[in-house]
Structures are given as C-alpha cells and as structure tokens.
Design a binder for these strands. Structure first.
Lengths: 186, 186
DNA sequence: TTTGTTTCGGGACGATCGTTCAGGTAGTTT
DNA sequence: AAACTACCTGAACGATCGTCCCGAAACAAA
C-alpha cells in the first residue's frame, strides 16, 4: 500500500484543502449563508467547477469545512491544556486568555464554530465533530466532580456565545474572576 | 389619538403577525436558511407578494421574526420566575423543567433562539432582542454575588446549546443536579 | 509511445431567488 | 357620491443559484 505517490492526487488533495480553507474564510466573513460554490471558488481563486468536482454537493463542502474547523479548535484546546500543565497552572489564566482571544481576534472563527453547533443540531452526522473539543477536554482533564465539570463545560460555551452578542469583546482580566469561579473546587 | 379604528390597518397588522408566525415555524423546521419569501408565504397561506408588501425586505422579515421570538421567550422566563417565587422555591426545579422543555418538545424553538444569537453576532441591531431574556433575569433576580450570577447565566446557555448537539434530549432529573450546582450559594 | 486515469475548467441549463409593478379591492374620509 | 388611502395579488424581470456536460490537460502505467 503506497502513500501518496500520484502527483495528480497530491495536487487534488492540496486544492481540496485550499477550497476548505477558502470556505472557512467565507463563513467567518459572511456566515454559512454566504457559502455558495461561486463565492468559495472566487475566494480560493479557482474556477467554480473545481468546488463541484472535489465535493459532491455544496452540503458536502459545508460539512467538510466545519469538521476541519472543529478539528483545528480541538487541537488548540489540546495545546492550551498542555501549556497549562507544563507550567503547573490550574488553567484559569490560560482559559481566560483563550476566551478573550476567541472573542477578540478570533471572533470570526468563533462564530463559525457556533454555526457548526447549530448545523450539528439539525445534522446528526456533524455532532461528533461539534463535540470534539468537549471530548478533548473530558479525556485530558481529571474530573473528580462530575457535576462541577459539566458546569465548567457549559459555562465556557455560555461565556463564548454571550460574548458574541456583547457590543465589544471582553478582556482576559474581565473574564478572569468568572473563570476562577468556574474552576474553583468546593 | 385614536387606537386602531381603521379596519384596513387592523387586517394588515393581523396578517403581518400571521406572516411572522409562519416565518418562525419555517425557522423551527428548516432554520434561517430555509426562509424565503415564497416558503414563508406558502406556510402562511398567503400570496408571495404579501410578504414583500408587509416587510420592506427579507432581512426585515427575519429581524422582525426573531425579535418576536425573543420577546416570547423573555415572557416565558418572566412567568417561570413568577411561578417559582409564588411557591417560595429557589427555582432549581423550575429551571431544570424549563431546560428539559426547551430541549425536548420546544427543540425547534430553542434552535431558532440560537439562530437569533448568531444573527445578532453579525447584526448589532438584533443584540438588544437577543439579550432580552438575560435582561429579564438580571432585573428580576436579586444577585448578591455578581460573579456567581454571570456563571449561572452562562451555564444555562451552555447547557442549552450543548443539549442541542446531544443525540437525545435530557430529562429534568438529569439536569437537576447541574442546575442545583449552578444555583447553590457558597 | 500508447493507453488509462485523474484533475481541470469553460460554458450552459433549469430552478429558484428577491423584488418590482400595475391593476384591483375594500375601507375611510369629505 | 366622490376622493382618498391602505391593503391585496398575479405576473414578470433580472440575478444568482446548484449542478451537469464534455473536451482539454497533466500525470501514471504499459
């Protein structure tokens, strides 16, 4: 079994990835509603037929894009935990920083994440992807208190989505006491 | 200043309301993506031009619908608090029941609520409507601990949106301990 | 070189979209 | 009754949509 020796397939996979990246940029800018074969193709700098060739339908493209987005976010969460552990932190500072980042510079990406959530609510096939970062946290963090852990996960999601409808992004300092409260054992 | 004596305007307002109700049903069934002049008109049983007459654009219709939806939910929250107070409860049972209701029978409505959230993230004009139920809670509940209250609000949102991507709706009994944890003072 | 496979892309088709328009109807005012 | 206003609606226009077709090009296997 050979791994990727065909130059044609290599180019195809690369373009496929470029299309997904372009689709994500479109979602960040205009939301899922702005995703059409033509807008994505234009964003990627490829002809319209290229997106239909690599994805059997527009829905496939959307699903592939959001799954890719979810994987990236899960990876980000993974490294955040790793970072916190390496400096022996309880994680409050890292979490607050990550939230501030998600609601500030990464606001578009965060909105895309929640568009994935809503799409997953209607498309069961997307649910594993949508739950991915939750699973990463669940598997990596030792939780002696099951209920407290569920509250923590819900709190993160709530802070993010409420932060999206605030008029301006919060700073890490503003978020800090809330995150502390969420992490404080009792 | 006379109040609604013109029969023509009365009929117009009634139809306007019917269109909004139909649009909400479409959103619950197919999401914001499924909203077009034609689908809404068909759902309401009116000609297509009727929706364009009463709403200057499709966007106006969407905004009006989601504002109406948000007002209904705020009212619901208001009565829940009232109910809890009248029986001297701390509210945990009522909150758990409301969440189970929102994720079970009212699942479509809840998804519509969060489509509003995401739309509000992109359209500042919708933010007051999206924050409405938060404001109702904030104004009605005495919160001696500001941070704990913010965690409570975030937790509710997180439980709801995570419940939407679970494979089945949770029962009030499953939610109860988490809600208890959120409400427990310390 | 020949044959087969995979990617590429211009062009087009039918469907559906938001919106407009102009004429018609019903209710109000004078 | 006449003038006016507000609501109603069938028909249609131009734009955009997803998708398909088919030949060309690039690359691999023979």
């Amino acid at each position: 079994m050979k791994l990727q020796v065909d130059g044609r397939k290599a180019r195809g996979d690369k373009r496929r990835a470029e299309i997904i990246a372009a689709a994500l940029r479109v979602i960040e800018r205009d939301g899922v509603a702005g995703v059409t074969h033509r807008t994505v193709a234009a964003e990627a700098g490829v002809p319209t037929t290229s997106t239909t060739y690599h994805f059997s339908s527009l829905d496939d493209l959307l699903v592939a894009t959001l799954i890719s987005c979810a994987r990236d976010m899960a990876t980000e969460v993974y490294w955040m935990i790793d970072r916190a552990r390496s400096r022996g932190s309880r994680g409050a500072e890292e979490v607050a920083g990550l939230l501030a980042e998600a609601l500030g510079p990464q606001r578009g990406r965060t909105m895309a994440e929640y568009e994935l959530y809503l799409l997953a609510a209607r498309k069961p096939e997307l649910r594993p992807a949508a739950r991915r970062w939750l699973d990463v946290l669940t598997s990596m963090v030792r939780h002696d208190d099951e209920v407290a852990f569920r509250v923590f996960l819900a709190g993160i999601d709530g802070l993010l989505i409420q932060g999206l409808i605030d008029d301006g992004p919060p700073s890490a300092e503003e978020l800090r006491p809330v995150v502390d409260y969420l992490l404080k054992p009792r």
